[in-house]
Design a protein around this nucleic acid. Structure first.
Length: 117
DNA sequence: AGAATGACAGGAA
DNA sequence: GTTCCTGCCATTC
C-alpha cells in the first residue's frame, strides 16, 4: 500500500476536510467550524477557509460552506458573493440579505456521527 | 524571528 | 437579532 508518510496520519488534514465538504448534501449548508469538526480538526475553521481558497476542483460544493452566523464569507457586492448566492439558490437555498439559516445542532449531533475513528 | 494576513468563531455590547 | 471586538491557527512577508 502507498504509505506516503511513515510517521504521519493515513490521510492528510486537507484530505479529510475536502471529504467533509463533499459530504454536505445539496440543499444543506455547514459552517467552516462544523466542517473542521467533522474532519476531526476542531478549532481549525481558518484552515478550512485556506483549503477552499487554494482549491481548484469545480465539483467541490464550496458554496455550501458559510460563516458560523450563516453569513456568506465573501464581501457583499463581490463577484464571488454573487456566485455563491446563485449556486445556493440552485440548491434550493434562499439567501436572505447575504445570509442563510444554518442547522442549530452543528456541534453536537454532527460531531457524534462524524466522530473520527 | 517578529509582524501581518485571511472564504473564521464566540462572546460582549 | 446585529454589530463589534478579541482570540485562534496556519501561512506568508
Amino acid at each position: 500500500m502507498l504509505t506516503r508518510n511513515m510517521k504521519s496520519s493515513p490521510s492528510t488534514p486537507e484530505q479529510r476536510i475536502l471529504a467533509a465538504i463533499r459530504a454536505v448534501p445539496r440543499g444543506q449548508v455547514a459552517s467552516y467550524g462544523a466542517i473542521a469538526r467533522r474532519a476531526g480538526l476542531p478549532g481549525r475553521a481558518r484552515l478550512v477557509a485556506r483549503i477552499l481558497g487554494r482549491n481548484d476542483d469545480p465539483t467541490l460544493p464550496w458554496h455550501r460552506i458559510l460563516r458560523s452566523d450563516g453569513r456568506i464569507a465573501f464581501p457583499p457586492g463581490s463577484a464571488e458573493f454573487a456566485e455563491q448566492c446563485r449556486r445556493l439558490r440552485a440548491d434550493g437555498v434562499e439567501p436572505r440579505n447575504g445570509r442563510v439559516r444554518l442547522p442549530q445542532d452543528e456541534g453536537t449531533l454532527d460531531a457524534a456521527l462524524w466522530a473520527p475513528r
